[in-house]
Computed example of a mutant assay.
Amino acid sequence: MLEIVIEARNAAIGPGMNVKRILPFRLRRMVGPFIFMDHAGPVTILPQKVHAMDVLPHPHIGLSTVSYLFDGQVTHRDSLGVEQVIKPGEVNWMTAGSGIAHSERFEEPAALAGGKLEMIQTWVALPEKDEEANPAFHNYQPEQLPVFTDTGVWMRLIAGDAFGLRNEVKTNSSLFYLHVELEAGARFSLPKEHAERGIYVAKGKIELAHQTYGPGQMLVFRKGAEPVLLAKEPTTLMMLGGEPLGERFIWWNFVSSRKERIEQAKEDWKQGRILLPPTDNHEFIPLPEDKSKPAGSPQPEALS
């Protein structure tokens, strides 16, 4: 039933931003097409130090980034000229494809007051046929995302399909991604229609087969398992998964089915062939040295 429990590790993605890193994990690199998952916050920082959290312009290829906020706000800018203030409950889906650069800046101190900022960012690997697609960015408002409620259960479909729900978020492969809120005593299960499925406990506690799991833990289940989860207290879960895509290489912010494509992306970034955001082009994150371990970045490796 339960294949593995992943414990989040601490990682730094910038001088003022530490996160809990869930994926990739050495014993379970991907869950469906999801190849990366970070949980940031709640962040407590003095207003005068807010800009220390900024993530400067940096590149991606071969994936889609998905940003989802519980609280606070962040400003996204990218090579396409998109400038989007990301707010709680929205889905922000950026497809890097052949190459894009973007920044994430925290420009509203009031939105961070009292430890308000809290967000989840995932990367979704692209199918081979879409790895060189044109870059794109889409913002989806909360009213575009179906919500289901039952006794003690509130659930929003972020993307894909699950429990009979679908939405208009554009994806490139079969997947599901859910935000679930459970009241104490509520029971919940997993959608059955996907081969690989994981549950991340963002807040609260759940019980499964007389074992209790809490914040920072991801439970990954074998195909066909039908677990019943019991919320021991008010609990926030992120559920995700889908069909596996096969082996992927990951290095820094690059994902590809071909190792040589990663090498090309490194050179493209060094030579300026991946354009900076036109309204945020005065600074950027340089390509890390190959032999170093960049803060907040996965090591070069193949994932499957």
Rank of each mutant, 00 (worst) to 15 (best):
N134H: 11
G89K: 01
V43I: 15
F176N: 11
A302K: 14
Q48K: 11
R166W: 09
L276H: 12
Y68D: 02
T151Q: 06
K266D: 11
L219H: 03
H282Q: 07
V255W: 13
F254Y: 14
L63V: 05
E107P: 01
L175M: 14
T122I: 12
P109T: 01
W93N: 04
W269M: 03
G272A: 04
T212N: 10
L276R: 11
F36Q: 02
V74D: 14
W269K: 01
G242M: 07
F163Y: 15
P57S: 13
P33R: 01
P146T: 06
H179E: 14
R273D: 07
K170A: 11
R9G: 04
T235W: 09
D38I: 00
V169T: 05
I4E: 15
F34S: 03
E207Y: 02
P33N: 04
V201R: 06
L175G: 12
G160C: 05
A202W: 09
G32A: 03
H179L: 03
W252L: 06
T149E: 15
N253A: 11
I100A: 12
S98N: 12
S103W: 10
A136T: 08
L23D: 08
K270G: 01
G32R: 03
P146R: 09
Q271R: 09
E301F: 04
I13W: 11
A225F: 05
V153G: 01
A111N: 07
